[in-house]
Amino acid sequence: MSGPALSLRGLVLRFGGLLAVNDLTMEVPRGGIVGLIGPNGAGKTSVFNVVTGFYKPASGYVEFSPQEGPARKITGLPPHEICRAGLARTFQNIRLFGNATAVENVMAGAYVREKSRWWMNILPLFPSAMREEREIRESAAAMLERLGLEKYMDAAASSLPYGAQRRLEIARALSTKPSFLLLDEPAAGMNPQESAELLTFIRNLRDEFSLSILLIEHDMKVVMGVCEHIWVLDQGSLIANGKPDEIKKDPRVIEAYLGKEAANA
């Protein structure tokens, strides 16, 4: 299929007098793994929040083309509609349903695709609803197994080790059956070995679930290792974009990250 999976056109986001995102135009090709980087406070997470419907942009729009069907504008849709359209995300500061077990977390993620209505499962009168419940439970278990979380199946999500919580959040996002995944700092808090494993993990996810992935990351090893294309934000504006090798050498990027002197050196 042609055309980008996600495109942002002239996005402007203001918080009072603060210009958080300034005329941002970028896109993510279908099946691509794309990075969005920039120093702290550059507006990366704000971009995610606009895409997933939590912030309304002052101007500009976001266009999403799902696996099947034509591209559609998703700006202005509520977050749950955007998820239904096929976008899923994880959070910088892991947001699991802490009191629920791991498998319940994943099952709750699958609810958006559930066809039976809430009252159908009170009395065992609807075979189709009962079958669907069983399928959801089974595929949630399979998803946990796929991400290596089977031993935490019935453990409370908040009691899981940090890395497992990150993976559980991804499992939950995948259970909404997305065609596009937004990862907000997936390597945060991981040791070098874990982040090295993350590279293959992300690539495998993309291939296995035929996803397009946009990720925010500070760990440059991860960004350079996994991303096919990188967009760089600084103070809300796009300052560069290109292949990892080009970004590495780009003086504006070096300046934004390390200051003017480093760029001139």
């Binding site: 998820c83 959070f91 699991l96 319940e104 499962n121 939950r172």
Partner: peptide, 26 residues
């Protein structure tokens, strides 16, 4: 029965983290 069904998971999800629940299509 209600709380054991997936809708029960959803109710608890809304309680635990409303933002995450909305992001998960709820």
């Amino acid at each position: 029965r209600l709380m054991k069904s997936n809708f029960g998971n959803v109710i608890k999800a809304v309680r635990d983290d409303e933002t995450a629940a909305r992001t998960m299509g709820i």
